[in-house]
């Protein structure tokens, strides 16, 4: 299986109920937590398993591939 690309998570703060489920399920070995008890949003996740997104009771977590922030890594426009 191809290795997943690193992603940066963002949280829809209005939807988040601060339940902490995303932190509890996160497989990162080091703490990967924001100041609001969600998964971290200030650094990329290189595992990118997305189970935090799947388990969130209110679907408040979204991700963007890190490569999409780097113009040279984006697919060329036709």
């Amino acid at each position: 299986m191809a290795k997943s690309e690193p992603v940066l998570f963002s949280i829809s703060w209005n939807a988040c109920i601060q339940c902490g489920v995303c932190v509890a399920i996160c497989p990162q070995e080091k703490s990967f937590i924001s100041h609001f008890d969600t998964i971290a949003i200030d650094r990329p996740c290189d595992i990118a398993c997305m189970i935090c997104e799947n388990i969130c009771p209110v679907s408040a977590i979204h991700h963007t591939k890190v490569s999409s922030f780097i113009p040279s890594l984006q697919p060329e426009q036709a």
Binding site: V21, V23, A24, E29, S31, I33, I55, P57
Partner: peptide, 24 residues
């Protein structure tokens, strides 16, 4: 549930995706 202290001591604390109930 979000325990980090066990992790710091190197304990295996991870919960399986198939065993953590998401509640509302």
């Amino acid at each position: 549930l979000q325990s980090q202290v066990g992790k710091w001591a190197g304990l295996q604390t991870h919960i399986k995706f198939t065993e953590l109930a998401s509640c509302l």
